[in-house]
């Protein structure tokens, strides 16, 4: 059974292709956009920068080869979620095209010129004011999704995009799960091992608070440059998460009490005790947030590095 928008039964390939065609716009995408350069690649495909032939703008296109997608029905999820959910902290969906001859799917999104948060966390040092600002923006996006009973399930710095003016947006909704109500749960292990919550790695039923745990791991990225256990194999990392629970924070004594408490509230192993987005949006740590424009020097430095 797959986790998709609604609880989808096992769709046949034809049904999936028909679903994608229904969601896609007509016309030939390769004649409407000029591909400029490759921006990156991930599990589901490559992302390229492109220019519409009839407009002076820049877009990002995620190109997915339909023949080697582990879970094609998740592509339908991604498009449905991005089409329906509009929020200032969620990457804007523009269009999508189904290229039957190449068996490819193109998802056209807004382009953020600052790149992924990963480059900033690995190449620069963020202060607590900047960490608070990024955390607040991500929490606003998560609050919006959770309110609609949707879990992201893959929160990490790679899926947080930045604009040169400091805008912060969440992306990559291919692994979203729709819960059928507040108490509904999921069990499929989805996400990236180093960011997974204990209840996910131990294959228990989980809910929206898995995103809160991953947010906590992302804050560790902003502090230390990478998530805990990244020097280990994914399997060992999963074992450590399942057995150790809350990871150690290096130089914890240097952190402010507000940040320490904020982290503790995110990285609480017991799901019922773990904070939700509403509580964290009221947390004292976010009052330390500096203006988003202070991210610009970090983005420039990361690009140069």
């Amino acid at each position: 059974v797959t986790d998709g928008m609604a609880k989808k039964k096992n769709l046949t390939d034809d049904e999936i292709h028909a679903g994608l065609q229904r969601l896609a716009s007509p016309g030939d995408a390769s004649s409407k956009y000029q591909i400029q350069k490759k921006l990156g690649s991930g599990a589901s495909g490559n992302v390229c920068m492109a220019k519409p032939v009839d407009a002076d703008a820049v877009v990002a296109i995620k190109m997915m080869d339909l023949n080697n997608q582990p879970k094609k029905e998740l592509l339908i999820t991604e498009i449905e979620v991005m089409k329906d959910y509009k929020h200032p902290n969620i990457v804007n969906f523009l269009d999508c095209y189904y290229l039957s001859e190449k068996q490819e799917l193109w998802v056209v999104m807004e382009y953020l010129d600052g790149g992924a948060l990963t480059d900033v966390v690995t190449e620069t040092i963020m202060n607590e004011g900047q960490i608070a600002a990024v955390s607040r923006e991500c929490l606003q996006a998560l609050d919006y999704l959770h309110e609609k009973h949707c879990i992201h399930r893959d929160i990490k710095s790679d899926n947080v995009l930045l604009g040169m003016n400091g805008t912060v947006k969440l992306t990559d909704f291919g692994f979203c799960a729709q819960l059928s109500g507040d108490s509904a749960k999921r069990q499929t292990m989805v996400g990236t091992p180093y960011w997974m919550a204990p209840e996910v790695v131990s294959r228990k039923h989980y809910g929206k608070k898995v995103d809160i745990w991953s947010m906590g791991i992302m804050i560790i990225e902003m502090l230390e440059g990478e998530p805990p256990y990244l020097n280990e194999t994914p399997l060992k990392a999963i074992y450590r998460i399942a057995t150790k629970g809350k990871p150690d924070i290096k130089n914890a004594e240097k952190l402010s009490p507000e940040l320490k408490d904020f982290l503790d509230r995110c990285l609480e192993v017991e799901v019922e005790k773990r904070a939700d987005t509403q509580e964290l949006l009221q947390h004292k740590f976010l009052t330390k947030a500096r203006p988003l424009t202070t991210l610009r020097p970090l983005i420039v430095a990361a690009k140069q590095a």
């Binding site: 599990a43 582990p70 879970k71 499929t188 292990m189 990236t192 091992p193 990244l230 194999t233 994914p234």
Partner: peptide, 19 residues
């Protein structure tokens, strides 16, 4: 080694090859 490092950050659905 670089390719394995990059693959560590890939998203998994259900179970991965190393499980």
């Amino acid at each position: 080694k670089k390719r394995f490092q990059r693959k560590k950050r890939y998203t998994i659905v259900g179970s991965a090859y190393w499980m």
